[in-house]
């Protein structure tokens, strides 16, 4: 039986903010009578994450992602509802929970800026009470994937962003936590490092059944890693489903792009929506469940000669954009 590692139940968070008016008059007004507003950053969010899942938690800026993450690690207490990590509540058992938690904030390092990377590792070993043998073994394993030994003796301030990120990931995994929170782990990194980091996440997930919660704006991360994505917008979960299902249901269609040799043609097909793209190229939009790509191609090649063709999968970017747009429309 699979047990819930993370259980969020009607989780809500409200913030009170002071509104700042602009201009000279506004500045004077702020001085004497600031305007206060209540903002509900997270609004009755519920979900359950089981052991070994990699979940993408995404949403536009200011949607409530990091607020949710902060509530899960115990940095913020919820206004309403609750969250349980391994059956414990971060509100009153934070120190116990974080012992089994790894957290990486992509934009902020937890490493000592002035010291060699290894010193930060040694410190973390003591913080998380990892014994020497276990530490050596973990480090060797992490090193195999992340190659941290290359720069373990270099002061962190001299590391490149990619090296620093690898260092931060290793630091978060030194105590082999069962849950790993990654807040934009690939932000600002080049293709190679992104690839290495995705590979790392995949491997630790397969090997140790580490549960990973990932927030990111890079949807390639999601596509490469997550089987399930939760989308939050304006504090509300607008979608929580397996990746394929989401794509299927949002964009059930695919695109077939063909280039024909003959100059004069009038292609029609009852099961495809056709748009000419110019220079003998056509775009055919069709649904997988109505007609297969092979059938469509053979129908067309029966009438015309196809010089080149290309099938486009629905893009996760389109899906997300569509969902964001829809939830925004619902708000208005």
């Amino acid at each position: 039986m699979q047990s819930a590692v993370i259980l969020a139940n009607n989780l809500s968070k409200e913030f009170i903010t002071t509104k700042k008016s602009s201009g000279l008059r506004g500045a004077v007004k702020n001085l004497f009578k600031p305007e206060k507003t209540v903002k509900r950053a997270v609004d009755h969010v519920s979900f359950e994450i089981t052991k070994g899942e990699i979940v993408g938690y995404i949403g536009p800026n200011g949607a409530g992602k990091s607020t949710t993450i902060k509530m899960m690690c115990g940095i913020l207490n919820p206004t309403g509802g609750n969250v349980l990590i391994n059956g414990m509540s971060p509100v009153n058992q934070r120190q116990k929970i974080v012992m089994d938690l790894g957290v990486v904030f992509g934009q902020r390092s937890q490493l000592y800026w002035d010291l060699p990377l290894g010193e930060s590792f040694e410190l973390l070993r003591r913080i998380y009470l990892v014994d020497r043998a276990k530490y050596e073994a973990n480090l060797a394993e992490l090193d195999r994937i992340l190659n941290v030994h290359e720069f373990i003796d270099t002061p962190v301030r001299q590391l490149s962003l990619g090296q620093r990120m690898r260092g931060d990931l290793a630091a978060a995994m030194l105590h082999s936590p069962s849950v790993l929170f990654l807040d934009e782990p690939t932000i600002g990194l080049d293709v190679d490092v992104k690839y290495a980091i995705r590979k790392f996440i995949k491997e630790i997930n397969e090997k140790y059944q580490t549960t990973v919660i990932l927030t990111t704006h890079d949807l390639d991360d999601i596509q490469a890693l997550c089987k399930r994505i939760i989308i939050i917008n304006d504090g509300i979960i607008v979608s929580d489903s397996p990746l394929e299902e989401l794509i299927e249901q949002e964009l059930g269609h695919r695109l077939l792009i063909v280039e024909l040799s003959a100059g004069d043609f009038h292609v029609t097909h009852p099961k495809a929506e056709i748009t000419p793209l110019g220079s003998n190229r056509l775009q055919l939009k069709f649904r997988k469940d109505e007609i297969s790509a092979a059938a469509l191609i053979s129908d067309i090649s029966a009438q015309y000669q196809i010089r080149d063709l290309q099938i486009k999968e629905a893009d996760i970017n389109d899906v997300i954009r569509q969902i964001y747009a829809r939830s925004k429309a619902a708000c208005l």
Binding site: G23, L24, A27, N30, L31
Partner: peptide, 12 residues
């Protein structure tokens, strides 16, 4: 500069 200074009421 004036506007900035005015907006920092605690500092003032």
């Amino acid at each position: 500069k004036l506007l900035l200074a005015l907006s920092y009421r605690y500092e003032v």
